[in-house]
Design a protein around this nucleic acid. Sequence first.
DNA 1: CTGAAAGCGCTTACAG
DNA 2: CTGAAAGCGCTTACAG
Lengths: 342, 342
Amino acid sequence: MSKSPSSRSRASGRVTLSDVAARAGVAPMTASRAINQPDLVSSLLRQRVEQAVQELGYVPNRAARALASAQSNVIVVLVPSLSNTVFTAVLQGIQDALDDDNYQLLIGNTRYSDAEEEKLLNVYMQSNPDGILLSGLTHSPRVQQMLETSRVPVVSMMDLSSDPDLLCVGFSQVEAGQAMTRYLIGKGKKRIGFIGAQLDERTLRRAEGYRKAMADAGLADTRLEIMVPDPSTIALGAELLGRMLAQVPDCDAIFCCNDDLAHGAIYQCQRRGISVPEQLAICGFNDLPASAWMKPALTTVGTPRYKIGFEAATMLRATIRGERPAHAHLDLGFTLMARESA
Amino acid sequence: MSKSPSSRSRASGRVTLSDVAARAGVAPMTASRAINQPDLVSSLLRQRVEQAVQELGYVPNRAARALASAQSNVIVVLVPSLSNTVFTAVLQGIQDALDDDNYQLLIGNTRYSDAEEEKLLNVYMQSNPDGILLSGLTHSPRVQQMLETSRVPVVSMMDLSSDPDLLCVGFSQVEAGQAMTRYLIGKGKKRIGFIGAQLDERTLRRAEGYRKAMADAGLADTRLEIMVPDPSTIALGAELLGRMLAQVPDCDAIFCCNDDLAHGAIYQCQRRGISVPEQLAICGFNDLPASAWMKPALTTVGTPRYKIGFEAATMLRATIRGERPAHAHLDLGFTLMARESA
DNA sequence: CTGAAAGCGCTTACAG
DNA sequence: CTGAAAGCGCTTACAG
């Protein structure tokens, strides 16, 4: 009659499904059904089980469920940064899309590192995820291999792949970079600099679009490019503006690979008494909240990051359920936001 | 001799520890030791097991491990927002503190809602976490109860509790609000407005500090307070600046409960031709990256959010290991950043 | 240093 | 609609 576990017991001491079943006077199997598939149980037993759950404060053990059912209900999300608003918006979209689905999100921060991505994926694979959401298209060979051998559904976010079979949701980073550069060229700018930081794949593709547009217009000049691996910050934008002007004194426009850099460049211009856009046009990428409000308001590229997360999660969920999406690639596009700074 | 599982098998098809053991010619127990406690196994067998792991591409099943060992190695983190830089910095600190510890972080976004916090905790408790990191001190009664009955170690972040037994890492939000208000009073300001949004507990405590300082100086006037439940954004700051000036035309300073609001207020002043700080002093809270760079540079309160995350995670880890921290409360302080705007 | 047995808490696959 | 049996893939607690 003793309630304490025998000395040789390995029981955790927590309330288990068997405890609930005993209290309700049913078999554990029935208690399980009453909780997970209530429609299959008579209302009388269901009520008795529900009451036992309440009285005992039963909390299901997710590990046991995952083990028995071979279904983890885990979705892994890998993003390169948590401090970059772009990716927190993506995460928000994912959460909203999956809100009612009882999925558990395992959020990994790769810090823009392929090695870190590999490490995280290695650990997260131990949780036997039902699906994976990845940022970007380029990954280490081992990551590619892990993904293939695991046969877990994957959706890539942010850019569009050239592989027609790869599920992805995003927009063409190359075209967006090209569009912004063409806009500046259309404004009559000739000496258009490009400032790139972090050098993640998206920045590289935007630079690719910039180069295409410059070459098309016969304006290409490698000295107009400043590329540094440091993280994008306002402070770095301010610094790189100075470096660009020192390197290319007749520069008449600067395309920053993102808004943080552009904000820093504009603040630096204000400090140096350089009028924007009259003396120097400046534009960014991503349209952060401050961009529309600052003086001068920043010309930039609006990107559908929230929607990317939402749609990618939706596509992944459909794939997990065994549905084949009509289109493997979902192009959400971008919007050129012409404002005051360029 | 067939490799395919029998039709009645429930096996997942994945490589298991038994497969590794069979390949290495050892018992599963020995394979387990070779992987998790290699020092307890002879180097010969260890090597054979390691090789089998490689050849088979073995990935341990975390659910099985958690179930058998009654140890999840999961730490739950609940933050009110992922779009607020403050909390992403906290998360970064947590990740850095726990980096080498094989903990799996379950990050939950409560969206500033007690009900959502309750819902998340309910789900996350199913993972049997080893520890929990919470934002703030106030929670719903059911959350409090879940925490108590579960006996899982908890560390609260951001503020300092009045309960001496509650583990917490942060700083006094009340004192910070008071300090900033006193600073403005010291600058000769008489009609100091307070703009509060979101109305989360930190904002309410900062407002409490503001009221104390105003009352102490005989400057209290409830019309000087604007409190709205909407999320803090630049746009809202711009709007509320207008509302404050309409309501209190002789207002000579505005204390915004955070930097986003303050940025919006300053941008709005620029648009209206109001000089800051000459006509109107404006200050914020948190010292976001843009604050030091914008013109005028924002006077604000610097807060140790990264360190809060780092130290809270460190304290939690120690507690999980059974150590008693020397002090239950860790006060990391704040810094008044006097700049141009006030 | 190594291994056979039992068990963690749940669900699957049956059977009635 | 209900339940007895077996099993998911590991680790604990022993024993040798």
